[in-house]
């Protein structure tokens, strides 16, 4: 079998995963139907979108929204729904 997957001698025993947080390598952005598009002009950096994001997809730097990481964003639209400044719009992927 050449599945590219490791054999039993080459993986840690007992199903242990030794690399903490390695799901970051697994991109769930492909699930998305609607993409959050942020209007930085309108954004007040209240960080509500960040604290309510289920997918740890909103990047904050120096207390300000840096970007929405589309590698992980599944397009649920909670950020857009909760943004007090209405700075995020959900746009259908194909129509961008």
């Amino acid at each position: 079998m050449s599945t590219g997957l490791k054999g039993w001698k080459d993986i840690p025993i007992g199903g242990m995963i030794l690399e903490a947080g390695n799901s970051a390598e697994y991109e769930t952005g492909g699930w998305r139907t609607f993409r959050p598009v942020m209007d930085k002009e309108k954004c007040k950096n209240c960080l509500f979108c960040w604290i309510y994001c289920p997918d740890s997809a909103i990047q904050v730097e120096n207390e300000k929204i840096k970007e929405i990481d589309l590698k992980y964003c599944k397009g649920c639209g909670i950020c857009a729904a909760e943004c007090p400044a209405k700075a995020i719009e959900m746009v259908e992927e194909g129509k961008l």
Partner: peptide, 24 residues
């Protein structure tokens, strides 16, 4: 050195982990 134990182990690796047990 945080590790995860007891993950969901599907068709890709469950057999390998059981093979390890047989070996043990």
């Amino acid at each position: 050195k945080p590790i995860t134990m007891g993950p969901l182990d599907l068709q890709d690796y469950y057999s390998e982990h059981k093979r390890q047990q047989a070996q043990a």
